[in-house]
Amino acid sequence: MHFADPLFLLLLLLIFPLVWYMEWLRRHKRGALRFSDLGRFRKIKPSSSLKKRHIVTFLRMLALALLICAAARPQTSEQMLQANYTEGVDIIVALDCSGSMQAMDLDYRKQNRLDVAKEVTADFIRHRLTDRIGLVVFAGDAYTQCPMTLDHDVLLEILKGVSITMGGTIPDGTAIGLATARALKRLDNSQTKSKIIVLLTDGMNNAGEIDPLQAANIAKIQGVKIYTIGTGSRSGVAPVWVEHPLLGGGWTNQPVELDEKVLSDMADTTGGRYYRAGDQKELKGIFNEIDRLEKTKIEDLGEHRYREMFGYFVAAALLCLLLELILSQTLYRVLP
């Protein structure tokens, strides 16, 4: 409960001086009957009803306090109509699925880079409940694997099916510029204010006809921010399991060839950020930071309805006055 006009409550401060004044009047009031000697009356013990005579004054002051509270318009919340306005972010995840993503350095010799990236990306998607998210995969070429959608269950199923070079259907290589262009094409008709590309790769641009920085400049014109993520061991080499037809399987090391300058320049051009992930924990932290940076705007346009309660206070005040009137004319009546 709250008061619509709380300034009226300041009048409650007048009650205490008023009580004091009434008591002062009572004590200094001249008696209607006069006696030559009051000694005998002082020996009489006051009755219990006389001791409770102040209840009349209390009821009168309580009625006044209740009327003041009624004037302050007490209200209770009766109903709240919610009309949340949500403005989502349009996101394209561009995921490198080239042959080098087979390296097992992010989760050492347990999962390859692509599997770790898919797992972390899936967690990111699950947290973006009100955003449209799409998926572009790339190696030597780039393809839209899933257009932007709010049906994240479908998107997650498609993400599960992403594999190295998509089972050989995409030529090997790393077409960073072309992947960015594909993502921009998907965002071309977006009407949202916030549009971002999250591009994850472990290599340098060596395929496709589009330069990554040229694609970044186009993104800047379109108002699209690019967050680039470079993955790979910081040691400079990464373990890879290789099957040999005669010698069987075995571990070998491949060099980590990551063009951090290009990835950083792409992010800087568009107002995004470049991140370096040396292991699975770092990659999770990067996606969590992007999730915090790109927040969905939710505006509560709810309407609050209140129920006026002053009638109850007035009724209680009238009840107190009635009880005070009855008691003052019967049990606590003053004669004459």
Rank of each mutant, 00 (worst) to 15 (best):
P255A: 12
V242D: 00
F124P: 00
G168I: 13
R73W: 09
M61I: 06
E243P: 00
R34L: 09
L155D: 11
P147M: 06
A122L: 01
Q329I: 03
G278S: 05
G249R: 04
L129N: 08
M101C: 02
F8E: 12
Q102C: 10
G271W: 08
L11F: 15
A63S: 15
N288F: 09
Q145L: 10
L318R: 00
E87N: 06
I133P: 03
L64I: 15
T86I: 15
V237H: 05
T86A: 10
S77W: 05
Y108C: 02
N253A: 07
T76N: 07
I218M: 14
D96K: 07
V154C: 07
G31C: 10
Q102S: 14
K295G: 01
H28M: 12
R234C: 00
H244C: 00
L301I: 00
R34M: 02
A142C: 09
H54T: 03
I164F: 03
P212V: 06
T192R: 09
S233N: 04
G99Q: 05
L18Y: 11
R53P: 01
A315P: 05
T165N: 15
H2T: 02
V154K: 09
I221F: 09
D90I: 06
I197A: 13
L199F: 05
P245V: 05
E303Q: 07
Q280C: 02
A72N: 03
G223W: 02
G223S: 07
R73K: 14
A71P: 01
V198C: 02
L50A: 15
S36R: 14
L38P: 09
K281N: 12
L129Q: 13
G134C: 14
G249M: 06
D115G: 05
P147Q: 12
M148D: 11
L184Q: 03
C97L: 08
E299F: 01
T296L: 10
G168T: 12
S36Q: 14
A183N: 05
S190E: 03
K51V: 03
I290M: 11
L25I: 13
S264F: 10
K185V: 01
R234G: 10
K52G: 05
H54N: 02
G173T: 08
